[in-house]
Amino acid sequence: MAKIKPRVKAPKKAAVGEIIEIKTLISHPMESGQRKDSKTGERIPRKIINKFVATFEGEEVVSADLHPAVSANPYIRFEMKVPGPGELRFAWTDDDGSVYETSSKIAIA
């Protein structure tokens, strides 16, 4: 299977109180459990990212419960108000229990 790789695009610098845009993407097939193997006719078991959480200095900013109707390589874009300098942490939880993480620091301009 293709390597699962989380990616985040967030500004490195912002002003206090500024609203910033954060784009996230994780390479993942999001196997819906609806598809059948074209050779064997057997249903391909579901395996998706079912949870996404973004925190800033430990405080939850945005979280999402995801279902198989979310496209492969799930993309999530959101906005937040910067309270000060700190670190954004992102975590994606897979059906198999794996958690994929990345982070991004924001400095005050």
Binding site: S71, I76, F78, P83
Partner: peptide, 13 residues
């Protein structure tokens, strides 16, 4: 959460 703008974008099937 309190820091978020209550809006989001994604891609769906």
């Amino acid at each position: 959460g309190k820091l978020a703008v209550p809006a989001a974008s994604t891609r769906i099937r």
